[in-house]
């Protein structure tokens, strides 16, 4: 499986995206994440596992406390994919067509 597939699979879940968004503000404990999700700790652990398998987050143990943090650059394959030329231009030309078909077009001579 490519790293892109792994990343896309990992964030194809609303709770996991919320975990990622929360971690964008800094590392958090699993219990803090469980609170954010309104979910049990074991349930939260499952989501963290998926994100860790895809290389998006990293677990660090300090004493008895495990914190979860984002891996810098791990979402880059997603951004790179979205900016690849064929997708980029296809998307942009569709929007150009939509723009030119828009209401302001009617006022053109």
């Amino acid at each position: 499986m490519s790293s892109l597939d792994a990343v896309v699979g990992a964030i194809a879940s609303e709770p996991r995206r919320r975990v990622v968004e929360h971690l964008a503000d800094g590392p958090a404990t699993v219990s803090a994440l469980a609170e954010v999700l309104g979910m049990s700790v074991p349930g939260t652990m499952r989501h963290v596992d998926r994100l860790a398998e895809a290389g998006i987050v990293l677990r660090t143990k300090a004493g008895r406390v495990v914190t979860v943090e984002l891996v810098p650059g791990s979402l880059d394959p997603l951004a790179t994919w979205a900016l690849q030329h064929r997708l980029f231009w296809g998307n942009h030309l569709d929007r150009l067509a939509g723009h030119l078909a828009g209401p302001t077009d009617r006022s053109e001579p």
Binding site: R86, W89, L93, A97, H99, L100, A101
Partner: peptide, 17 residues
Amino acid sequence: VTVTRVVPADADRAFRA
């Protein structure tokens, strides 16, 4: 990479966009 679309406007208008 080549991508083509037909847009509903004349060439002047499309170029200006």
